[in-house]
Design a protein around this nucleic acid. Structure first.
Lengths: 138, 138
DNA sequence: TTAATCCTGACTAAAATAGTAGGAATTGAC
DNA sequence: GTCAATTCCTACTATTTTAGTCAGGATTAA
């Protein structure tokens, strides 16, 4: 399963934007300070957030980032997906034939892990970025 | 988050036991064949399952393993916990003071990740080993 | 013009995962 | 009583992933 610091940092940074980027772009340096994440690492993360159209950038001096959409419209799953590529626990060796582990039938836990995936993804589908800003308002 | 092949293998092996270890102990060699997991790796896994009192062993020739308790009484969380130690996504750097990342307050996503942990653990709490054997009866 | 900032790819250290290897202890089967 | 099957146990190792760092280029507001 992929659910690491990078994904968590991405959510933190996006929440930071949601709270602070009201009328001016927020620089990564600011976020780095506030959230205690290295600047260079943030740059990597925002590259992916941008290519997934979750943030909009303004280059040059006094530049920074905005959210591309209202916080109410951004699902956490969008963010996680953008930086971690997938939230999948299932790790059966896939073959040409349907089935796992070179066997013609699905392994015992195949469906279980599928369900878990849905369970976790469902969680991130339900929560919006805005939900995070409510309790931690600036 | 810790939710890897080892945990999945453990669940698979336990399900295999639940299905097959009715009146005789099942050797790891058998499970290895059926579930396509290396014998040496299974040994490692069963060491932990045993010390967590999830299986009972019978040594010597024609030996093997039984479930320690009825499949209906074994929660998947017990199994995962036994081999993976924890199902926790939360990765805030903890300090003496409550709070994350050397800050006096909790990081924005702290509660969120806590909730996710509960969400996932809840899933494994609900499902019993027996539930797995129903659809995949021998 | 220059300083701040984003943009990009390549590199790296540390940790975790997914095993392997080798042998010792036990005991049922013959 | 021997032997073969099996559990038990510890240590080692290759691979992959994570969590960054680094170096430099491109853009633009002040």
């Amino acid at each position: 399963m992929k659910l690491t610091n990078k994904g968590r940092y991405a959510v933190m940074a996006m929440a930071d934007l949601a709270i602070n980027a009201k009328d001016r772009p927020i620089s990564l340096a600011e976020i780095s300070l506030r959230q205690n994440i290295s600047l260079a690492y943030l740059e990597q993360i925002f590259l992916k957030l941008k290519s997934n159209k979750l943030v909009r950038s303004s280059r040059g001096a006094a530049g920074g980032y905005f959210l591309e959409k209202p916080a109410a419209e951004i699902k956490l799953s969008n963010i996680i997906h953008a930086v971690d590529e997938e939230v999948k626990t299932l790790n059966c060796k896939k073959n040409s034939k349907r089935g796992c582990n070179n066997k013609p039938i699905k392994c015992i836990t195949h469906d279980l892990w599928d369900q878990l995936d849905q369970h976790i993804n469902g969680f991130f589908e339900k929560v919006k970025l805005q939900d995070l800003t409510k309790t931690v308002e600036k």
